[in-house]
């Protein structure tokens, strides 16, 4: 894309420019044109670092996010729901793979990213540190958590880094299925027995605030936002996306015949924006700092799976090496 400005070509043509200066100019032009940066293009180190952090954080979230839902695969209350849930968790593993691959194009291998996760140096979405205690949480996770993820991710389909943007196109298509199945679970429960309806309402009550916090801290406190917006990675601010999401779910919850646990939700006609009650950012920071309900459990599971699988990965590597050697001899 836009290779006619290539600084490498310029250097080859012998115009004597410093490659870093030429690279920066080329990069700035791409951003100004709202075009795409590709893996071999020159890019500022900070841009690369920001992307690796964001993409790997997203990948880790998909992987850790398999756990709360995996918790209900064995107990799903009908075979059809079990099949849908398995397909969904499998999609999440797939999203993790695309995203790790996108991060690898920036020069960081999957093993390194995984080590960062296990060492507690990389983050994943805070929402997955909350427990999925009831079946209705499968509905609330799909509707609210995947719903919030979609609001966040649809604009990322236009992110300036090509491989990330393209991965997001595919991820978003599957996420919209996920959100729909979550809503369908809740709708079935809401129209079911009183106990089922109560289960659905409790799940929404529990998941609502954490889902809103998925958009990140308020714009006034967001550490990475303005630079990411300047780089065309982020297109809307945390608060803008959060307001948009609240507006969507405020309408959808009426179809369920259930309520959101926030009496302050209203559409402000003057500003044209949805308003909502104060969120407990203290709790958000606590969970982010590792003091949430399931942080330790999620990490233990990931570490255990990784350690228990070490001998399998070693065997696969040894087998591949032996086979390669054999082919060389032959």
């Amino acid at each position: 894309m836009a290779t006619q400005h290539s600084p490498l070509l310029a250097a080859e043509n012998g115009d004597g420019q410093d490659p870093a200066v030429a690279g920066q100019a080329y990069f700035d032009q791409i951003i100004e044109d709202d075009s795409r940066v590709e893996p071999r293009d020159w890019m500022p180190d900070a841009y690369r670092k920001t992307l690796i952090r964001q993409i790997s954080q997203h990948a880790h979230s998909e992987i850790i996010g398999m756990q709360p839902e995996g918790n209900w695969i064995s107990r799903a209350p009908s075979l059809k729901r079990k099949a849908i849930l398995m397909a969904k968790v499998q999609d999440e593993a797939g999203h993790g793979l695309y995203l790790y691959s996108a991060a690898e194009t920036l020069g960081t291998p999957r093993e390194v990213l995984n080590d960062q996760l296990l060492a507690g140096k990389a983050r994943y979405s805070s929402i997955f540190n909350y427990p999925a205690r009831s079946w209705a949480d499968m509905g609330a996770i799909g509707w609210l958590v995947d719903g919030a993820a979609i609001c966040n991710q649809v604009p990322l389909c236009r992110a300036s880094y090509g491989p990330y943007a393209r991965a997001m196109v595919r991820v978003c298509k599957e996420e919209s299925f996920h959100q729909r199945q979550g809503f369908e679970i809740l709708l079935e429960l809401a129209n079911g027995t009183p106990a089922q309806k109560q289960m659905a309402q409790e799940a929404i009550n529990g998941m609502y605030a954490p889902a809103l916090m998925m958009f990140g801290p308020p714009d006034s406190d967001s550490a990475h936002s303005s630079q990411s917006m300047a780089w065309n990675i982020k297109r809307f601010s945390n608060d803008e996306l959060r307001q948009r999401f609240v507006g969507m779910i405020a309408e959808q919850v009426k179809v369920l015949g259930l309520t959101l646990p926030d009496d302050d939700i209203r559409f402000n006609k003057d500003t044209g924006k949805w308003e909502y009650g104060e969120l407990d950012w203290q709790e958000f920071n606590e969970v982010l700092a590792g003091r949430g309900p399931c942080n330790a459990q999620r990490m233990e599971r990931r570490r255990e799976a990784h350690e228990n699988g070490a001998w399998v990965r070693e065997a696969a590597a040894a087998f591949a090496a032996k086979r390669a050697q054999k082919e060389q001899v032959a």
């Binding site: 398999m66 695969i73 968790v89 255990e304 799976a305 070490a310 399998v312």
Partner: peptide, 12 residues
């Protein structure tokens, strides 16, 4: 095995 496999590809 989901979320417990030796490698992401095996989870899938």
């Amino acid at each position: 095995w989901v979320s417990r496999a030796p490698e992401l590809e095996e989870d899938m």
